[in-house]
Design a protein around this nucleic acid. Structure first.
Lengths: 231, 231
DNA sequence: CGCTCGATTGATAGTGATCAATCCGAGTGG
DNA sequence: CCACTCGGATTGATCACTATCAATCGAGCG
């Protein structure tokens, strides 16, 4: 039984609604609802690993509820988080035979699991699967392009403003965000030290743009934040 | 006639060799040789635009010879180059209806051109096309993940060492690289100012790792460079 | 020959990393 | 129920790196 307390404010993905294939792309990104039909659900407690870097990449995953991060370690000990995957996001697809990052549940998390060869077969035979996957990748490459600009050129405050708005965009109806990850995790995502993340949060709080209560962040002035974020 | 002087040392893509579909992925990345059969060739002189940011994204492109950069401008005037596309690379695929970056030929460049709807039809009907496209995207998301780590955490010298090796990896048999782009372009790719790029080049030269002659760079100690790049 | 644009080099300042010292909250055991 | 502990968060002080401003150089070109 999966009756575990899921992190509040992390919405459950709407379970495979019979929506038409070419529904307009929502703010949450292209839906993977058709693909979802073929997954096997699997539950992970907070702070447990879904898989580890270098493991054979035999499965891909779709987040149904919760949050998964994909941290990557370099030989010299530096750490980078590829993304924080929210409900509706797919992760764990690799071009090589082993995972190039690990994946861990940030909070209690439910995922759908796909055997790699089976998903490849599906994509070859089921046009809808292929379509959803490809749309997802196109959408994501767009997101990462802006993130790269931010990583290379953005200041700490711009990075954090962007981060908050980006998360807000991906969870529906929410100016109150639950951020179960640590400051270090956010820093490893944005290319900042945990101290700078902390300092920048307080700056935003002092400017009245956000309110912080533990791991819950209230966006008080989203418009001002989006000006800071530069779009 | 396209008998124009192409930038030296920028190799022509091997024109659709009748290699099997599942040939091992080379260092240059997955081949798009099957897709190439369906493109219409088009030539661009150095420093001319293939398309502009905001234009309707009706075509995708495959580089046959030369080099194309995809710079992106923010509302506040900052600039970021998504990638330098070398022979064999595909660019201009968008999830939305308009290009989110522009594209310009760095040197005299030959591309193959694909109408968007036609390529989508092809991907739906031709399994090989779908396979090549998807492999290409998986391969690329891997590359961008490492680039993001570099952008967020790397020092100027690490970034430049990585950049040189990355280009070298994508052109065959070459420790002598032709870099037709400006220092500013390299900086906008790596998140550095043009001055820092220049200074870092001289540092690498003074350390005997590279030799510079105009826009041609000779990699004298690739091994030392790869240690610097951290992989 | 002189113009122009990019590259290089120099000097300075700003931003964020780093090192270090509390602080806080949750979990633990008495 | 309360002291204790431990990991993460916050705040402070300092330093290194790179952006920025500025000057010079050099090559290509009219």
């Amino acid at each position: 039984m999966f009756q575990t307390r899921l992190s509040e404010n992390i919405p459950i993905m709407n379970p495979s609604p019979s929506s038409p294939a070419d529904s307009e792309p929502s703010l949450l990104g292209p839906k993977l609802s058709h693909i979802a039909n073929f997954g096997r659900s699997k539950f992970f407690h907070a702070k447990t690993a879904v898989y580890s870097q270098e493991d054979p990449a035999d499965f891909s995953y779709l987040v149904a509820a919760g949050m998964v991060s994909t941290p990557r370690l370099t030989s010299d000990g530096r750490r980078s988080i590829g993304d924080f995957h929210l409900p509706g996001a797919i992760f764990g697809m690799e071009s090589g035979n082993s995972y190039t990052s690990s994946a861990e549940a940030m909070c209690d998390t439910l995922v759908l699991c796909f055997a790699r060869d089976r998903l490849e077969d599906l994509a070859s035979t089921d046009r809808l699967v292929e379509h959803e996957l490809f749309n997802w990748y196109l959408h994501n490459s767009n997101r990462t392009a802006w993130l790269m600009l931010l990583l290379g050129r953005g200041s700490a405050i711009e990075k954090l403003a962007y981060f908050l708005l980006d998360v807000a965009k991906r969870v529906p109806n929410s100016t109150r965000l639950n951020l179960p990850m640590s400051r270090t995790d956010i820093g490893d995502y944005l290319g900042l030290s945990s101290e700078t993340v902390s300092r920048t949060f307080t700056t935003l709080r002092q400017q009245g743009l956000i309110a912080i209560d533990g791991h819950s962040v209230l966006l008080l002035k989203p418009k001002a934040l989006s000006i800071l974020a530069g779009s």
